[in-house]
Amino acid sequence: MTVNVLFAARAERWETYEGPLRAALDAAGIDAHLSMEIAPEEVDYIVYAPNSELQDFTPYTRAKAVLNLWAGVEKIVGNETLKIPLARMVDPGLTRGMVEWVTGHVLRYHLGMDTDICRTDARWEVRTPPLAMERGVTILGTGALGSACAESLVALGFRVTGWSRRPKQVPGVDCLHGEDGLRDALARGEITVLLLPDTPATENVINAGTLALMPKGAFIINPGRGPLIDDAALLAALDRGQIAGATLDVFRVEPLPQDHPFWAHPKVTVTPHIAAETRAVTASQVVVENIRRGEAGEPFINLVDRNAGY
Rank of each mutant, 00 (worst) to 15 (best):
F262Q: 05
K83E: 04
P227V: 11
V286I: 08
G181A: 04
A9Y: 11
A187G: 06
L153Y: 11
P130Q: 02
E41L: 10
I38M: 02
T199Y: 12
P92R: 07
D174Q: 06
T271A: 10
G181M: 11
S35T: 03
D180R: 15
Q258D: 15
V106E: 01
L69Y: 02
R62M: 08
A283G: 13
G217Y: 08
G93I: 04
W14A: 07
R22W: 07
L186W: 07
F7R: 11
V77M: 04
F57G: 02
G309C: 02
G297S: 11
A212G: 12
L238C: 10
R62D: 07
R293D: 05
A296I: 14
T142H: 10
T120Q: 06
V270M: 03
P255F: 00
A9Q: 09
T81C: 01
A264N: 14
V73C: 03
N302S: 12
P227T: 08
E74T: 09
L34W: 15
G189M: 10
P92W: 06
S147H: 12
P20M: 01
G226D: 00
P299K: 12
T210I: 08
N290Q: 03
N68V: 07
K64N: 05
R108G: 02
L54T: 15
N68A: 13
A150N: 05
T95G: 06
Y45G: 01
E203L: 12
R306M: 04
A23W: 08
E151R: 15
G297E: 09
D230M: 13
A155D: 03
L303Q: 14
R165Q: 14
A283K: 01
S284M: 13
F57T: 14
E298F: 03
S284I: 08
V268A: 02
P171S: 11
R292A: 10
H110D: 00
L156C: 00
P130A: 00
I206G: 00
V193Q: 07
D26M: 03
K216R: 09
E298R: 15
R293C: 06
T2A: 01
V154I: 15
A63W: 03
A212S: 13
R165C: 08
I206C: 06
L140D: 04
T61I: 13
H105E: 10
T61A: 10
V126D: 04
